[in-house]
Design a protein around this nucleic acid. Structure first.
Lengths: 235, 235
DNA sequence: CCTCTCAGGTTGTCTGAGGAGCTGAGGTGT
DNA sequence: ACACCTCAGCTCCTCAGACAACCTGAGAGG
């Protein structure tokens, strides 16, 4: 009395499984053109619509992509890559290094492309960061990240924006730990305010080089602190 | 000349988008029972099979789950962080811009940190790229990407390496389309060989500035070609 | 009160038809 | 010899209709 496992699953699910297996096993590497609908229907022993729905399911999972008139092609062999988990596992220094690298160039684009709305958002974020300087560490870090996110957004590249968003959780935790560990805020209630103001100004004036340099200096400084902290923790 | 992602097309894709929006926007929280297929077909103005395929696509992405006899239910409101799919949807120009930005800085780090093994791998990849210049477009693009991946690997930052790997599929398709579209290889069997050789040499000598500059120039050139292609496709 | 039956609604599957788009072969003109 | 055009054949896309399998809830019967 298996109570439910009698029917393996719907035909569509079975077909999806068969196709997925062909892909993940490496039988059909990336770039492979799948057999046509009618052919698949015959070989799998199901109707055409069933095959179509199975293919749609794989397309939804990001494994294949259909091109009208050409065929269905394999575009990936793994369902999903878990970036958040990977970033969580990675060393903070490595994450921060990549973040620096991405964001400095984003600042350059931002200086070249910022609109009036972007400038307004930047000033608002800068004011918010100053206001949050009086709050707790987490709030201050959030406001800081929001300002940096506004800079990235001003670059007007959705891929870049998404990429930065991906880094935010890991960044947030790392920065909170850092601020807490070094007790930065004890010596200076609003660390980096000058450089952040300079950054906003550079973006506003469209001075790409200054924006780059200012941000690079600031992030390098933080990166150095992170390395020290890592050293200290290791020793 | 599909060239990536400027097609709104496909009724199924549109329907999928409409439904996905309802879910991700919070309009239909987890547990919601979707309207019946016939109802959805009427309200969306499409056939029932189209609705079914759209639902299958969402099921493949893990957003909904269909139960025969009962209905279709929302089981998640976020499509799982799916970078590959996001990159596939994004405009090629945006993807390539971010790639440029990341890789140029990676080249700088590579020049500062490369080991003997890295240099050997670079020379090997360069030779492979030359060998592949005689092959078909896909093989040449693969060899080209492998060389660039070797440069990124020499930066010795795992996050950076993973990030670049994430871009490879989207990059590969975009470059194949570009090479095919412009018929680059017809005029020059091995385009960019000089600059690639210069890049490898700069990394080998530890000249970060030269590595940066060389790579930036090359990628800017390709990016300009992509923009032209996009213009041509748009007009 | 519990159980059984059944009607209505839902998803699952198949088939046939026509439309739209891509690809490669073959012909045509220069 | 080369470039261009045409077109047949293939592919996916969409629809409509039909029937099967299944779940749910209301109502009859015990």
């Amino acid at each position: 009395m298996t109570l439910g496992a009698l029917r393996p699953s719907s035909l569509v699910d079975q077909a999806t499984g068969r196709l997925r297996e062909q892909i993940t096993s490496g039988e059909w590497p990336v770039g492979t053109k799948l057999p046509g609908e009618t052919t698949l229907a015959k070989t799998l022993g199901v109707g055409r619509s069933t095959v179509r729905e199975a293919v749609r399911a794989l397309a939804g999972a990001g494994l294949v992509q259909a091109r009208q008139g050409s065929g269905v092609f394999v575009v990936a062999t793994e369902p999903v890559e878990d970036w958040p988990a990977r970033l969580r596992r990675a060393a903070v220094v490595h994450v921060y290094e990549v973040r620096t690298l991405v964001e400095v160039q984003a600042a350059r684009l931002a200086a070249e492309r910022r609109t009036g709305a972007d400038v307004a958002a930047l000033h608002e974020a800068l004011a918010a960061r100053r206001a949050a300087a009086a709050g707790d560490d987490a709030a201050f870090v959030d406001a800081d990240i929001a300002l940096h996110a506004a800079v990235v957004a001003a670059a007007h590249n959705p891929v870049l924006t998404d990429l930065f968003a991906e880094f935010v959780p890991a960044l947030r935790q790392g920065l909170i730990d850092l601020v807490d560990l070094l007790g930065l805020r004890h010596h200076d209630g609003n660390p980096g305010d000058d450089s952040h103001a300079a950054l906003v100004e550079a973006v506003e004036k469209g001075d790409a080089e200054a924006a780059c340099r200012t941000l690079q200096d600031e992030l390098d400084h933080t990166l150095a602190l992170l390395r020290e902290a890592a050293q200290g923790a290791g020793a």
